[in-house]
Amino acid sequence: MVVDLKEFCGEIVESFQTTQGKSHQISFSSEGNSTQAGADASLLKHTLDNLLSNAIKYSPEGSSIRFTLGRC
């Protein structure tokens, strides 16, 4: 399945921002032009949810979390 990574990640960040309320500010940015990838969307969502959840859990309350989509 082809996934638009910029849109996909943006939706995940928006969902986390809604559920986490004011405890953390999550900023999302995308570098480069190529944002599509062949991926299992369900597995990718689970992985990114886990990474953001850990970032929130191990960051001081009120801190900012940066999520950057970049090219390798």
Rank of each mutant, 00 (worst) to 15 (best):
M1A: 11
M1H: 15
V2W: 09
V2I: 13
V3E: 02
V3C: 06
V3G: 02
D4F: 00
L5V: 03
L5H: 10
L5Q: 04
K6E: 05
E7F: 11
C9N: 08
C9V: 15
G10V: 09
E11Q: 14
E11G: 09
I12F: 02
V13A: 08
V13C: 06
E14G: 06
S15A: 12
F16A: 04
F16S: 02
Q17C: 06
Q17W: 08
Q17H: 08
T18S: 12
T18E: 11
T18K: 11
T19H: 13
T19D: 10
Q20I: 08
Q20P: 04
Q20T: 06
Q20H: 07
G21T: 09
K22G: 02
K22E: 08
H24E: 07
Q25E: 12
Q25H: 15
I26P: 00
I26K: 07
I26S: 05
I26W: 05
S27M: 13
F28R: 07
F28H: 02
S29Q: 08
S29F: 12
S30Q: 04
S30T: 06
S30K: 01
S30W: 13
E31W: 13
G32T: 06
G32C: 13
G32V: 08
N33A: 15
N33I: 08
N33D: 15
N33M: 13
N33Y: 00
S34H: 14
S34T: 10
S34G: 02
T35F: 12
T35L: 02
T35C: 02
A37N: 00
A37S: 07
G38V: 14
G38P: 00
A39F: 09
D40P: 00
A41V: 03
S42D: 07
L43E: 12
L43F: 13
L43M: 08
K45Y: 01
K45I: 01
K45C: 02
H46G: 04
T47E: 07
L48S: 03
L48N: 05
D49H: 13
D49A: 10
D49I: 05
N50L: 11
N50Q: 10
L52V: 15
L52R: 01
S53C: 06
S53H: 13
N54C: 09
I56K: 06
K57R: 14
Y58N: 08
P60E: 15
E61H: 03
E61M: 10
E61D: 05
G62Y: 14
G62V: 05
G62E: 04
G62K: 07
S63F: 02
S64T: 08
I65F: 10
R66A: 11
R66W: 11
F67N: 01
T68C: 07
T68L: 12
G70L: 14
G70I: 10
R71H: 12
C72S: 09
C72A: 13
